[in-house]
């Protein structure tokens, strides 16, 4: 057989792969699955852009057209919705895997890029949620933007910057649409590419040296299987559960139980307890900051790479788990209401 040059996909990996870390039981494929979901979101999102109307009068109606009239529109929207929900989950779990198995060691810049991607993922999801322009999302948007006003000094300027006027309206919807499809999506593409490039530049998946290595073919095979399983799961979800769509947003109607999207429920819970700025803006930002500087402060050692719950990173792991547990408990409390 003639020698064939490897296709582009193979550029993601070096010729040989550390054997232990290439097994799915080390990474659970969470980074790769997040990447796949991101690609699915990009493709389905662009198709939706051909129909979706980013105006208060047209938004809800055009989503109903996508959902109930356009051929396979319901599937398209469901896949986009579920890929977005799943991606929040896989990105957070990926972060947990890297934190708990010392994957950030000797490659701390990539951890920072990852934190940036977490931020972008959350706000891509939130801006997408707003585009539904139904009763639930209208209140989430109202609360979320009013939070900005609580920032000392620059609050009202920040509000105008995000909302484009004195109150939520056509300008705000257009802005969230532009952030969603371009302002956040494009930086996300850049940071995803940088993130993957850094993995390759830092020597592939974090691993224990010296490592027995195997041909990359083995990892590629595992990745293809993981990809197929993810797509099967995604389509199954999309077939079984429809993306929600409430009645059109009406800023004058009383709503019984306005809820934040599930990944911001913990902030809604905090807002019931604390003062607006501290609970709604400062605490989430501080948590993000703490996450960002974790590998620069609590664990500066490069020993214990690729070992679950390695000793040098013990303090970092505890802090990470405490934050994760706190957010999880608040989220759980929010779902009980």
């Amino acid at each position: 057989m003639a020698h064939r040059r490897p296709n582009f996909y193979y550029h993601l990996h070096s010729l040989t792969i550390p054997a232990r870390e290439a097994r799915p039981s080390y990474t659970f494929g969470l980074g790769g699955i997040s990447l796949l979901l991101f690609l699915v979101l990009g493709i389905t999102g662009v198709i939706e852009m051909f129909v979706y109307l980013p105006t208060p009068e047209g938004a809800h109606e055009s989503i109903r057209q996508i959902t109930y009239l356009a051929p396979f529109g319901w599937l398209l929207r469901n896949v986009h919705f579920w890929a977005g929900q799943l991606m929040v989950g896989t990105v957070i779990l990926h972060m947990a895997r890297v934190a708990l198995s010392g994957g950030y060691k000797a490659r701390r810049l990539n951890w920072l890029i990852g934190v940036m991607l977490l931020f972008l993922t959350l706000f891509l999801d939130f801006s997408g949620y707003v585009l539904r322009w139904d009763q639930d999302t209208a209140w989430a948007l109202m609360v979320g933007t009013n939070l900005l006003k609580s920032v000392p000094g620059i609050g009202s300027a920040l509000y105008r910057f995000v909302v484009g006027g004195e109150a939520i309206g056509a300008a705000a919807l257009l802005r969230f649409y532009t952030w969603h499809v371009l302002g956040l999506a494009l930086p996300a593409v850049v940071f995803v590419a940088w993130h993957i490039f850094r993995v390759r530049r830092d020597g592939g998946i974090s691993h224990i040296e010296p490592a027995p290595r195997v041909d990359r073919q083995q990892l590629v095979r595992t990745e293809l299987i993981a990809m197929l399983l993810t797509l099967v799961g995604l389509v199954a979800l999309a077939l079984l559960a429809d993306a929600p769509l409430g009645p059109p947003a009406d800023p004058t109607a009383l709503v019984d139980k306005p809820q934040a999207p599930w990944f911001f429920l913990w902030i809604q819970e905090l807002l019931r307890i604390g003062s607006t700025f501290v609970a709604g803006v400062l605490t989430p930002l501080l948590i993000l900051l703490v996450l960002a500087i974790l590998p620069y402060t609590l664990d500066r050692s490069d020993h214990g790479t690729a070992r679950w719950f390695n000793r040098p990173g013990r303090f970092l792991q505890v802090v990470f788990l405490v934050i994760a547990l706190g957010v999880a408990l608040l989220t759980f409390r929010g779902t009980l209401r």
């Binding site: 209140w139 609360v143 004058t252 019984d256 306005p258 807002l271 607006t276």
Partner: peptide
């Protein structure tokens, strides 16, 4: 007056 929801 907190964050702009409509009170019941």
């Amino acid at each position: 007056t907190h964050l702009g929801c409509l009170v019941e």
